[in-house]
Design a protein around this nucleic acid. Structure first.
Length: 92
DNA sequence: ATTCTAACA
DNA sequence: TGTTAGAA
């Protein structure tokens, strides 16, 4: 009882959780199949809010990646940024 | 080499 | 959405 997993300990010690900012836009583009242009556009549409480094570069977490994949799916179903925003808000 | 913003023959 | 120029 009260057991915590090795993964949880590692996440606490190394700060590598699903919400940890870790990927640059180039990596995210490869992972999601979206273009950097689109990824930046969805941020402006308030669908995503990646943190910025001191050099102003965007850093995305694993959760952000999943969110973007969701967005891509909804886009293929014909929804626009506004409709997607509503759906994403409901899932929070 | 990458990413950022702003802008459009 | 793509692409590009100029800066970081």
């Amino acid at each position: 009882m009260g057991e915590i997993t090795y993964t949880e300990v590692r996440e606490m010690m190394l700060d590598v959780g699903a919400n940890t900012p870790a990927y640059t836009i180039g990596v995210v583009a490869d992972m999601t199949g979206l273009t950097a242009r689109q990824i930046r556009y969805y941020e402006k549409a308030d669908l995503l809010k990646p943190i910025r480094t001191k050099g102003n570069q965007r850093l995305y977490s694993q959760n952000d990646i999943e969110r973007l994949v969701q967005i891509k799916k909804l886009l293929n179903k014909g929804l626009n940024a506004i409709g997607i925003k509503k759906i994403l808000e409901e899932q929070e």
